[in-house]
């Protein structure tokens, strides 16, 4: 870093927190959809993110075309994997939540093992496009250009998701299925098809997050678990089913993980736990009924 640049220690962590939070939101949005619509706790969700991450690591070579290719391949692969999970689940959908958890965890274990087998046990390096490899000056601070662009792209994705869920017919059907699946079936739309579509869409979101977020939360053997945990925390904090709540929770978690660590390093391990405990204790009774009211 060039000498003479004023360095306020908290601006960069705060920006990092925004990037981190938006990444977690895009990853967690898929989990909210699965959970809210299909009532499925998809434990393979982190693995779908890892698929995107590994695709990015394998295909990115520093150029723009490779980014487009990686995004396309990663999204398609993760969507297909989401649809596969949905296909496996439809035959046991009438069973209880335990079998669903077992099945999705089995898929996560097997998928994680296949990924490590294909890409090796180390964390592969990820090359961002050369044009974004440098840093830019934001309000007197140097900041990685890729992260800045990522913040914009992820915000666009979040806005797009909001529009799709709120304004399109598909989004309306999905919301209707949350409220009353039987009534949707009476209208002539198969809830099973909605479930498959939602799980595939969740896979697409996780895959996109994996490709675009690979330089932030990189692919590796531990990625799937870490992303699943962060997504779970964010979904629970956000009120189990609310997209807006999930976005706010994700941004808060991003700040806790970056700014919180910079401000209070000794308390860092407990901050996430404490935040969750506080939020849950305050609105614990609301959680049980949250799914219906969304």
């Amino acid at each position: 870093m060039a000498a003479g640049i004023r360095f306020d220690p908290y601006v960069v962590p705060a920006l990092d927190g925004v990037a981190y939070g938006l990444l977690v939101f895009v990853a967690a949005a898929g989990l909210v959809l699965c959970f809210g619509v299909a009532g499925i706790l998809n434990l393979a969700h982190g693995t779908l993110y890892a698929i995107g991450g590994y695709t990015a690591a394998a295909l990115l070579d520093g150029g723009w075309p490779s980014l487009a290719l990686a995004l396309a391949v990663g999204v398609v692969a993760a969507t297909a994997s989401g649809a596969l999970v949905a296909g496996l689940l439809t035959r046991v959908a009438a069973r209880n939540h335990l079998t669903q958890a077992l099945l999705t965890f089995g898929v996560a274990l097997a998928g994680g093992s296949l990924l490590v087998g294909a890409f090796g046990p180390d964390d592969p390096p990820v090359r961002v496009p050369a044009a974004l490899d440098g840093s830019v000056v934001v309000a007197g601070h140097r900041y990685a250009a890729y992260r800045l662009v990522f913040i914009v792209v992820a915000a666009l994705l979040a806005g797009l998701l909001h529009l799709v869920v709120r304004r399109t017919r598909a989004g309306m059907l999905v919301r209707a299925a949350v409220d009353d699946a039987e009534m949707v079936a009476v209208l002539g739309v198969s809830p099973a098809r909605i479930r498959v579509g939602v799980l595939a869409a969740a896979g697409a979101l996780a895959g996109a997050a994996g490709v675009l977020g690979a330089p932030i939360i990189g692919p590796g053997p531990d990625t799937a678990d870490a992303v699943l945990l962060l997504s779970l925390v964010v979904v629970v904090l956000g009120g189990l089913g609310s997209m807006t709540g999930t976005l706010l929770a994700a941004l808060a978690v991003g700040q806790i993980q970056t700014l919180g660590v910079a401000l209070a390093p000794s308390a860092a391990p407990f901050l996430l736990f404490a935040a969750m405990a506080v939020v849950l204790a305050v609105r614990a009774r609301g959680l049980a009924t949250a799914r219906r009211t969304t």
Binding site: R91, T99, L103, F105, G106, A110
Partner: peptide, 13 residues
């Protein structure tokens, strides 16, 4: 892990 994961899926079915 692969075999174990497949065993999970098989157990469900």
């Amino acid at each position: 892990p692969l075999v174990l994961g497949l065993a999970f899926v098989a157990a469900v079915y």
